[in-house]
Simulated scan of single mutants.
Amino acid sequence: MTRQSTPDERRPANDGRRVAARNRAALVGAAREIYAEYGLDAPLSAIARRAGVGQGVLYRHFPDRAAVATAVLDENVRQIEQAAAAPDADIAGVLGVLTWHQTQSAAFISVLHIDGAAGRSGIPEYAAALSGRVERALRAHLPDGHRLATEKDDLMIAVAMVSGAVTGPTREQRERRAVAAWRLLDVEVGPVRPFDDEQRGQPPLD
């Protein structure tokens, strides 16, 4: 008697990898939304629910909170690093990209409040590492004599101060407050937009 294959047996072997990739993408997207709204202290269960998967699936992809946060916030930091690496980059332009990300994510703001103090007691290692990457990207274009270069800690203290001003129910309101905060600090900031807009030839966000 010929044995009939079951649907699972007929499924291509790489289907599992496709499902895993979809689940991971859904989890990162959900985490980005949850963290943007509620910050890094949001429960992982909320992320799993938003992604439409169980918590067991989340933990298969991300063993702990640090792994989830790093996967989400790395994109924010990477855009700032890309802006800093552009041939025509200057401190005002990089600050503009930084400011856009400040208006987008409460989680990113939480990282910037760390003041780049890697290794300080009580600061998660992943958060200190992300903050340090932001600081290095900015310092690469901080000229001697710039207002933010007077004292060693001035740069990231100013970034944290602006982060504290980024409040409001809409991105436009948060951007106005961020730009006003930079102005009060007497610091020039370039167009507030994500770096990818320039790469793709899209107009800046107003």
Rank of each mutant, 00 (worst) to 15 (best):
G122A: 01
L185D: 02
I123R: 05
A106E: 02
V72I: 06
L148S: 15
M161V: 09
S163A: 15
I114C: 00
A165M: 14
A83W: 09
D64M: 10
A160F: 15
R147Q: 14
G93D: 08
R78Y: 07
L58Q: 09
A160R: 14
V189L: 11
F108G: 02
V162N: 08
L73R: 02
A160I: 07
G119Q: 11
A137R: 14
A86T: 01
G168K: 02
A85M: 05
S121H: 02
G190N: 01
P124M: 01
V162T: 14
V166G: 07
R65N: 07
T170A: 11
H101F: 13
R174N: 03
A85R: 11
L138C: 09
R120D: 03
G190V: 00
V77L: 05
D186Q: 12
R174Y: 08
L95V: 00
A149S: 14
A180I: 00
L155T: 13
T99G: 09
E75T: 11
E75W: 04
S121G: 12
I157V: 13
V166I: 12
T99A: 11
A180V: 00
E175K: 09
A89T: 06
W182E: 08
S110N: 14
T103Y: 13
V94M: 13
V97S: 06
V159N: 07
E175H: 02
T70R: 13
Q79W: 03
P191V: 11
P124Q: 02
T150N: 12
D153F: 14
V134F: 09
V72F: 04
G96R: 09
R171P: 00
P63R: 13
P124E: 02
E188R: 14
R177Q: 12
P143E: 04
D90M: 10
H141C: 01
R133Q: 06
A66W: 02
A165L: 06
R65L: 10
V97T: 13
H113T: 02
I109Q: 12
P143S: 12
L95A: 02
H113E: 11
A158F: 15
N76M: 04
E188V: 11
V159H: 14
P63G: 06
V179D: 14
A66T: 14
V159P: 09
V179L: 13
L155K: 05
P124A: 01
L148I: 11
E125D: 05
T70L: 12
A83N: 09
P169Y: 01
V134W: 07
D74P: 01
V159F: 14
E151P: 03
I114S: 00
A84R: 14
K152I: 08
G122F: 04
L185W: 10
S105K: 06
A149Q: 11
R136H: 02
R177I: 03
R136Y: 00
I80Y: 04
V68D: 03
I157P: 03
S131L: 11
A107E: 08
G93Y: 11
A165G: 00
A149G: 10
G122M: 01
A69E: 15
A178P: 03
A160V: 04
L148V: 10
S131A: 10
I80L: 04
A165Q: 13
P169L: 08
P143F: 06
L148R: 11
V94G: 06
A118P: 08
Q82P: 01
V192C: 08
H146M: 13
L95G: 02
S105A: 03
T70I: 06
T70H: 05
L98A: 06
A180E: 06
K152P: 15
T99K: 03
